[in-house]
Amino acid sequence: MPTPLVVSDVAKSFTMHLRDGIRLPVVANVTFSIKAGECAVLGGPSGAGKSSILKMVYGNYAVDAGQIIIPYRDRLVDVASADPRTMLGIRRDIIGYVSQFLRTVPRVSALDVVAEPLVARGADRNEARDRAASLLGGLNLPERLWSLPPATFSGGEQQRVNIARGFITDHPILLLDEPTASLDAKNRDVVVSMIQQKKAAGVAMLGIFHDDDVREAVADRIIDVTAFSVPSEASA
């Protein structure tokens, strides 16, 4: 079985055309890989580029150099150069993403928000809803909220919807961008055990956790992002 995620020599910078084209380097020579069933956590101070790395892996940020290789449909695909259609397929089938914030969609119930990734993969809508309900229940989201659109939920409630949505599928790669940031201790523990279950199921995970307890509980390995930092003014 190929390694689910191999990142090699990836570099990212932002070119600000509106500010006379100045280049803001973020990271360079990013190189790591993640095995199935492993949870790697990106470490380093804020601004070091942890989020950028996660977003590059998800195809949300462009990659300046290097490769991000994942197996997709019996071949290896480089996310850095994949066309949008391939990337959409990869997001549907391979890479799940739990972001810090929920991008709410008006008028869609929490239950359907959670069930949607399964439905998008062809699952029966009712089965997907059942699965969504059991996840939301596990995350202690009051049942009276399930049929409401999450736009008006509190931060913690929205995040639990977001986590359920991210965990409902069996994507072989899961990217976790501070999923526990606004949760209380009880629900943090729930998320930790959900991550353990994913690990046991062989999912490769790459995450950012600011909470030391959670990080220690789930991380198999810390990837120090400062090692990839570009000496400031190096490119100026």
């Binding site: 600000m16 055309h17 509106l18 195809g59 949300n60 940020y61 949008p84 990337m87």
Partner: peptide
């Protein structure tokens, strides 16, 4: 051209950034 969220979150062309 590109994925919608990529173009909007990490625009490359000067005009797109504007």
């Amino acid at each position: 051209t590109g994925l919608t969220d990529r173009v909007l979150d990490d625009p490359q062309a000067p005009y797109t950034q504007l």
